[in-house]
Each structure stands twice: as C-alpha cells, then as structure tokens.
C-alpha cells in the first residue's frame, strides 16, 4: 500500500516528527511504500542541515535523510512555509527538496492513505 505522510510540527519541540518517522519505518518494514513525506508549518524545520543535536539525543534530520537514501522516500518541504522560516536550498539536508503545496495535494489524492502528524 502507498502511504502519504504530512508532518506539521518541528523537531525537538513536538513528538509529531518522531511519530511520523517511526510510522514510516514500520510501514517500510512491512513492505509498504511511502509515497512522500510532506513537511508543512514548523514541520519544515525537520529539513535543516544546520541542526546539531547533543550527542546523546536522536538526530531527527539525519534520520529522515537516511530514510530517503535507504528507501528512496521523497521528502518534500513546502516552499512558502520554508521561506518564512529561513529554510532554503543552501541549508537543506540531503534527501530533501523544496517544492509547492501542490505536492501535498498530489500525495493526498494519489496515495492510498494520507496520515497527518501534527499538534
């Protein structure tokens, strides 16, 4: 089955990004496909390559990048939300791309299920 995922909250502030990631990992382990993860609102902060958590904490951004590298998951950051929050191509972590809201709508109507993680 093809899942679309929407992440509406930023890393380290809210559990939404962690829940979304663990859901994706479990879905892939079961042989499902993650069609796309779309990052919106403060969720765009999941994509900053400037993120440097303390060593004993999980690296949320690197975890997403690895998911993209290992499974070809399409990580899309909303352009309008990103520019408002200082996320640009130059500070985007590997595996992420910046695009429009149309990518979210396409995922919502093109995937078998859309699961929303937020506040």
């Amino acid at each position: 089955m093809k899942f679309g995922i929407l992440v509406n909250e930023g890393p380290y502030q809210h559990q939404a990004g962690d829940s979304a990631y663990l859901f994706c990992k479990a879905a892939l382990a079961k042989g499902h496909e993650i069609h796309r993860v779309f990052f919106y609102h403060d969720g765009v902060n999941n994509s900053s390559r400037l993120t440097e958590p303390p060593q004993d904490d999980r690296n949320v951004v690197a975890r997403w990048s690895k998911l993209a590298a290992d499974h070809g998951v399409d990580l899309v950051v909303c352009v309008a939300a990103a520019l408002r929050r200082g996320i640009k191509d130059e500070n985007l972590a590997p595996g992420f791309r910046i695009s429009g809201l149309g990518q979210l709508v396409e995922s919502a109507i093109g995937a078998d299920r859309l699961v929303v993680f937020g506040d």
Binding site: N8, Y40, H41, A80, A81, G100, L101, G102, L104, V105, E106, A108, I109
Partner: peptide, 19 residues
C-alpha cells in the same frame, strides 16, 4: 496559531486539482 491560514492555502491549491 498559523494553522487556519496555512490550511486555507492548501484549500486554494486543491481547487486547481479538480477534486
């Protein structure tokens, strides 16, 4: 919070998808 505004932005984009 920003949710109402950014939700409306998605609604407007969705209109273009003929749903």
């Amino acid at each position: 919070t920003v949710y109402a505004l950014e939700s409306l932005e998605v609604v407007l984009i969705t209109a273009a998808f003929d749903q």
